[in-house]
Write a protein that binds this DNA or RNA. Sequence first.
DNA 1: CAAACCTACAACCATTTGGTTGTAACTTAG
DNA 2: CTAAGTTACAACCAAATGGTTGTAGGTTTG
Lengths: 135, 135
Amino acid sequence: MVVGLPTKPDAAGPEFDEDQVDLIFHALSDRTRRDIMGKVSQSEQSISDLARQYEVSFAAIQKHVSVLEKASLVTKRVDGRQKLVQNNPETLRRATELLAEYERIWTQRINAIGQILGEERQVGDRKRAEERKRR
Amino acid sequence: MVVGLPTKPDAAGPEFDEDQVDLIFHALSDRTRRDIMGKVSQSEQSISDLARQYEVSFAAIQKHVSVLEKASLVTKRVDGRQKLVQNNPETLRRATELLAEYERIWTQRINAIGQILGEERQVGDRKRAEERKRR
DNA sequence: CAAACCTACAACCATTTGGTTGTAACTTAG
DNA sequence: CTAAGTTACAACCAAATGGTTGTAGGTTTG
């Protein structure tokens, strides 16, 4: 429901918020954060619980969690004096579908390469024409 | 052949090179680079071709392509005085499977949450015991 | 050959990132 | 109430990032 993956293969791209995509991929590009995702997926944990399991400072883990939270990959739930971090499967699913969608879009032409030799040349020609415009 | 995705659902994690995962997700976390992926998937293009389509400088695009290349998301093929950038569907497929794998691993416990209430408590207890160690 | 084109790369700059320590506020336990 | 535990956040720092311009080296083209 939150998602809205396109179903047309020829669409320019998914109607995703590009900022959100930036945040998600950026959040996943750090191995400590990926590791945190793994830990909180087994059981929700407080920031302190998490911080205790890494070499870095409490504040550093706090920032990592914040990055994950801004990407909606985890949520925080207050429980007394601590906040429990839990992962958000919905965003995870969404991210997976998103990348699968990118894969489909970005490789569709490749799969049809044999059928479009003529068009390929045309594309090249059009490109060369644009080039002459010299902007 | 390059890949090595795990097939066991209960494995701790995929035997992927964590550095490579960092590179791939980081490369995908920038919308200009994602856009470049889209363009080169339609037809391989020289760096100049690409640069002409963006506001930023040639060198900036050169750097973006370099980031994509280090993540193995694109390859470069020399053609006379220019180098043609083409996307690498294999890495794309690999990345998609990787994220799907993460999704599966990171959400498996959630799906079984009803069945492991006892274990969940045990996990909590073990955690509290570790906490007493006070490192 | 000379001019134009394409690419690589260095040097530089502003901003972001990932890390630190320190301080303040709130919650629970004694 | 006091002390300990947990979190939030500010201030600071080094390194990485994304951008710039400039220079140099290959490749075509006229």
